[in-house]
Structure formats: structure tokens, C-alpha cells
Design a protein around this nucleic acid. Sequence first.
RNA 1: GGGGGCGUGGCGGAAUUGGCAUACGCAGCGGACUUAAAAUCCGCCGUCGCAAGACAUGAGGGUUCGAGUCCCUCCGCCCCUACCA
Length: 851
Amino acid sequence: MLPYEPREIEPRWQGVWEASRLDEVREGDDKPCYYVLEMFPYPSGDVHMGHVRNYSIGDVISRYKRMRGFNVLHPIGWDSFGLPAENAAIKQDSTPAEWTYRNIERQRASLKQLGFSYDWNRTVITSDVNYYHWGQWIFLKLWEQGLVERRSSPVNWCPSCKTVLANEQVLGEGACWRCGSTVERRELEQWFFKITNYAQELLDDLDTLEGWPERVRQMQANWIGRSTGAEIDFALCDADKNPSDERITVFTTRPDTLFGCTFFLLAPEHPLVKRLVEGTVFEAEVARVVELAATATAVERSKGERKKNGAFTGRFVVNPINGEKVPIWIADYVMMDYGTGAVMAVPSGDQRDFEFARAYGLPIPPVVIAEDDPLFETLYEARERKLDDVTWEAAFDGAGVMVQSAEFTGMKGGKDSPGSQAVIDKLAAQGAGRATVNFRLRDWLISRQRYWGNPIPAIYCDNCGIVPVPEEDLPVVLPMDADVAKGETLASRPEFYHVTCPRCGAAAHRETDTMDTFTCSSWYYLRYTDPHNTALPFAREKVDAWMPVDQYIGGIEHAILHLLYSRFFTKALRDIGLLAFDEPFSNLLTQGMVKLNGEVMSKSKGNVIAPEDMIARFGVDALRLYTLFMAPPDKDLDWSQEGLEGVSRFVNRVWRSAHDLLGETVVDEEGTLLSLYDESLDAAAAAARGKELNRELHRVIGKVTADIDRFNFNTAISAVMELVNTISSYLRVPLALRDEPLAHRAARTLVLLLAPFTPHICEELWQVVFGEEGSVHLQSWPEFDPKQAIADVVELAVQINGKVRARVTVATSATEDEVREASLAAAASLIGDKPVKKLVVVPGKLVSIVV
RNA sequence: GGGGGCGUGGCGGAAUUGGCAUACGCAGCGGACUUAAAAUCCGCCGUCGCAAGACAUGAGGGUUCGAGUCCCUCCGCCCCUACCA
């Protein structure tokens, strides 16, 4: 036996597989299609353990499905536009393109070294012109559909990255997702994708994504943030309640509390504020609060308990339900970008309004109260206002009964309650309100004031305004040699910037903003199905054949951003007629992180375990197997060097066991005999061990198959370890007494079951050691025969009054009556003469006797 | 504040539908082989107990012949999200 040398075996087989194009998709056969996809990497540096784990999961699924008879699409590419390339280029006095493509080549080499079964002929690189060309084409199609808008809006600006950001790219407490800087709010004219047109469908279809983790579905639902309620119009009035024509509309989820509205709030940045107070005595104080809100937000926000600041504007509105005069205040807790930026404040029903009322001495009349509230007796059936304040410590925002609410008194109040509906109906009848649905989701801001991205195909003409670049003029090519270190931008390149207007022929100039990188990653999975198409982003029949992605694998950090944008793209492209399905990813697996001592590995912390170091010591197969064995795929994995060594020992053991099963004498490097025969075994004992081995083979085939199907790779591997333990027991049978066909079958089965996990050692054993024809990765998955996994006899536990008291061995084929009899006999001395009240038989498991 | 998830040996974790809790691995302990070590192989390894046995899945209660799993109450931890009107 040759010693196991992963460093020799692994590169050799990788070369053979590449030369024979083993992993390239062969289209046109009649096998069912299966599309397995891992989120493609950003080429920021070396391949790390997180990549190894992510791609090992995908590779097991890919190889397994191929052995199960599927035609598998398993592609890889790079998400290669983005700001880090610009920053790196400045630091290294290089260009973003140079830095990006150098990193891609390094990562490509690493991924090949890891032996992943990618179809390298389908690589998609988003900064390649033959890809981003079609991103521009899709942009134009969305524009034609009315899904692209350029408009002025308050947006998030990162002063460090010097670009605007989408809402989804601003993390908690106002931090930029890339650099962590506090973002600023600016009013700017920008490009948007109208993702809000799909808000309802994006929410509804989450219910169809049964193959997604509940957590991700919840996060998306929360992000979309649907609220049902009403819009209510309040007319501005003067101090004597004379209404004007001007109305301010609010959104509320609690129209039933309208009788408790004692003040009216505007966001500090609300466009009306300035005009309401201009030239009045209230102007100075209002301006002070506006200023406070604009400057202190980010700092205040991080401080947990926030004091609510506000100021009276000196103006009033009329409450449309009861004609009461309500003062208009501004308050810094009212957000301009949710609802309408105006709020009807009901201090008894909303905690924030409650605190504000207490701080500024405003009345708090209760209007919806719980039935067990002490006030209930006093106020029940009170239609007029009897009580103008409460002794409560906090607002009551639950479901209750409406009081002090005219004809609505006594009705059930709460979110979406009959009381709410009744109030909406009355307001609708007088034209002062209507039922409506509000979403938290905002339109997707996709323009970036950066160089290294996909140019937005638009032209500015003094005569014609904003003009789309004609389809036949695509692609708008990004100059690859821009020296960003010297401050070069798209605007500073005359040959890029100056154009003639495609409509009128006058001198014009190009848009110099580029698209958000997330636009590139929103459709790359479609391009993989048809990566070389030069006439279209993809052909309809290719997409129809492969999509949707059967299994998508990636990190939870994309739960909202990438996954929501991709779902939007899919729906928008469907409506353009390019696709026929509603959702891009049928099943999603979010893998956990690889950590060291509970901390995320990072270069800056200096706690990185480099894959190549581990490969040099233990080999690719051991490393990959380790990442799959140590934890379930969706959980975080804390690095354990001892754990990797244990898995490496197991791989070595597989190598020795396979040789031994073929009848080879196994020796170590110094020639010491490692095969261990038990000469005391006779033919009958050998046959019994053979029977046991055969049974175990079938049990493990069944277990591994079921476990891979539900992504329990860790237990699939432990089942193979159990098989190897049983094989070890069989290997003690002296060669002369062994069942040779059985031993060979065991060896082949072991290798087939492990092939998706440890592809190199299995290929070596299969082709070289076993001398089989063809790659192990093109073999059929072992057939599971449940009948052969069953033993002739089975030991049952006998429970008496819920405790295991005895054991009885019966034939597997025994009838329930036979089992009953045998267990009563076995437990006779324990039961004595007590009458048996009940007897439950669980076939193959236990018997429960109650006395 | 809202939402999601979790609590099992010294550690990572297993237990698919309510059916013998702790599979598999790591660490540890003992033995074989060896001049010795490494490697390998065999065995032990929840707690208490000499043993028979008793007790153990965060705590307490319930349903059931039977609960890690289902229900209720409480405690603790993690993640996401948030002045969302």
C-alpha cells in the first residue's frame, strides 16, 4: 500500500478533471436539470475560510445531485465592480481594473486548488463589458416600463465614500454599510428603481418561498413593512376655527383613536414648516428645534433614551371627526420618510405621543381603554368628553373599547378593528379620509457618484432633456485605465463625457454616475444559464430550462439587500416578458460564519486561519470535510485545530480501510503491519460479521442519502464514520475467511458515499486502487435497499409503568401478539400478580406495560 | 419597544413523526505494539453510588403508557430590527 499523499493526489486529479472537462455542463441530454448556486465572491483579496465553507456546501450538493442522475449547473463568477477597488487603487497607485483582475486570478487559482466542481466555461465577471452591456440593456428595458425614475429626494450621502446610498445600505444608527461612517441626509436628484411598485407582491410571495429560512422571510417582511390604516385629511384653520382650503394628510394605523387627537405633528424637515411660522413669534423656537434635529440625530440616536423635542407653530388644524381645533407642533421624533411626514398625535394611545404630551403639558384624554381598566366603569357609554387626562404611567396601545367617541362609543377599538373601519367609513363619506396601505419600503436609489461601476446609459441634452442611450449604441464602455489616484472621474474623460444627442444631434453629455453594484448581482444567476450570448442577456429557452435556482447558498448578511433586489429584478423582467417565473431562488441555505474563539476572523484582528496553510498540512479533502462535519451548515463554526486533525485521521483511516478491504496488507511508512486479524474467529463468526457489515452498508446508504437531502452534512459524515467503524470490525476477519465480493462492495460503497465530500481521495481510490473505469464522480449514487438494512432479530426495551425494566429479543418478523407474549414472559417476575392494565407495542422499539 | 432563534456531557454536537437521551468527533483515562516516542489498534468515558440502583436535556408545573420533543409559567442567552405613527 502506498501512503496517503494528498499533496500529490489532489493537484494531479484536478489536472485530469480540467483536461477532460469533467465539470462542464452537457446540455441537451434528457436528464432533469438541477441548478445549484453559491453567492459569487467579491474579489477583495484571498479566498478565506468562509468561502471554503460556503463553496464546500455547494460542491457536495452539486456532486451528489449529479450522482443522483441530474444534469447539474454549478457555476462561479465575480461581483467585481465596487468602491473597494477604487480605494485599493489609490493606495497602491494602480487602477481599479488592474487590482480587480489581479485578485480575480488569485481567487480563481485558489478555487481550483480547492477542487470545486465549477463549470469554468461559464464564468461571469460583472466588470467585463460583455456582462455589464446587458445590465445597461436591462436598465433601458426597465426605463421603458416606467420602472426607472430620476427625481429629487432626501437621500443618504456617505461623506467618506463620496456617494449616495440606498436605504438598504444604511445600517442601524445611520452607518454606511461599506465604511461605517455616519451618513448625512441631503436633498439630491438621483436615479431610482421603482421597487415599491412590487412591494405587495414581494411581501405576498414570501409565503411561497417554503424553501427559505423563516428568519430571512421575516426580515424581508419587516423591511417591506406593510401597515394597513387610513389617510386622514386635516384642514388648516385659524385660531377661530375658520378652515382654509389647504389640507395636510396623515397616515395612521389607528383611525379608531381619532377622538383622542389633541395635537398634530410635522417632521422638522416637512416642507410646510417654514411657511407656517414665517414672520411669527414662533419662528425662532421652531427654527431652533429644526436645527437640533438636523445636527444631533445620529449622536442622539445611539444614546438609547431620547428626549422628545418639539415646538408649537402657532397654527391649527381641524379634526375632521369632531370639528375640534388641534394645535400644530413640530417634533423631532416624526420622520419625513415614513408615511406623510405628518402625524395625528393621540397621547393616550401612543407611547411617543404620551411622552411628548407630558413634556409639553398637552391633554391626554383616553379614547380606547381595556375592559379591566379602572376607568372603564366611569367612561363606558360616555359619548361626550368627560375626562381630559389619565393617571396612567404609559399609553394604552392594545385592543380595547372605544369611549368618549360620540356615536362610536362602545365599539371595539384597535388595529384593523371594527371601530377603525367605522371611523374610516364616516371620513370617506365626508371626503376627509380613506382606507390605505402604507409600506416602509422605499424606492431603490441606484445611482452612485463613483467611477468603478456600470455606467448609466443616459445622455443630457439641453434641447431634449434626459435621453436614453439607444439600444444599438450599447454598450456604454467604461474606460478601464482611469487613474483614480490622480482624481480622474468619468466627467474628466472628454471622449466619454462629450456626445451628440441621439435625438436632435446637438452637443450633449453623458451621465457620469454609475449603477449600484447590487444591480449587477441582481441578475447574474440568469446570465450563467447563457453566458456567451451576444444578442441578448440570456435566451428565453435557456432560462426556462434552468431557472429558478434549485438551491442557493450564501451568508445571512444578504438577507435583505441582494435577495430582495434579485426578487424585484425577477418580477420586473417577468413583466417585460423575458421570464416566466415569479421567484429566482426556490431554496435558500444561509450558512453560518467561521469564527476563531467566538470572533469573526479578520485581517485587522490578525486572527485569520488561512486555508492554504491547512491544505499544506492536511490536504483539501480533509479541510473541506472538516468544515462540513464540525457544525450544521446554518450554524456558526468555531475553528478547532484538534477537530481538523481528527477529521484528517478519519480520511487516513478511509485510505487504509479501502486498501485492507481489497485484501491488501496495510503497513505504515516504516513497514509496520497495521492490518489486525483476529485468528480466533471461525467461519460462523466471520459470516455473522459479514451479515452485520452488509446490514450496516445499507443502513448508512439510507442515512447519508436522507441527510444530504436535508443538508445535515455533519450527521451524514458521522454515519460514514460509523460505517468505517463497522468495516474495522470486519477487517479483523482473517483474509481466508472473508467474503471477498462483500468486502469489495463495501469498499466501493464507502468511496461512492464520500465522493461528494472528499472528491480527490475518492477518485484516487476508485480509479487507481480499485482499477475502475471512468471518474467516480460520474457514477450512480448507491442504491438503498431498506429490506437489507433490517436485522433478523431486534432487541426491545420493556417498560413497566414508564421505566425500562427488562429487555427482550424477538424476531423482526414477530407479530404483535408474539411480541406481547414474549415481553410479558420476560417481565413476569417484575409484574408478579399485579393485573396488567394496558400494554402498548411500538414495533422495533419498545413495549410499554402498565400495571 | 417589535420580530426571529436557542438553552442537552469537559467541548463541537446527535436524537427525521412523542418511543431505549448523550450517536459521531474532540479532549481525557487505561491497555496493546515499541528500547522509547509518534502513528496505529483495543477498551473506558453524564452525575451520585462499593453495588443494586437512583437522578439527569435552563427552573417549575401540565398532557400522555411514555416528553429533549407538545401545552402553560418563569429564568437566561444570541441574532435581526426600530422614535414606523
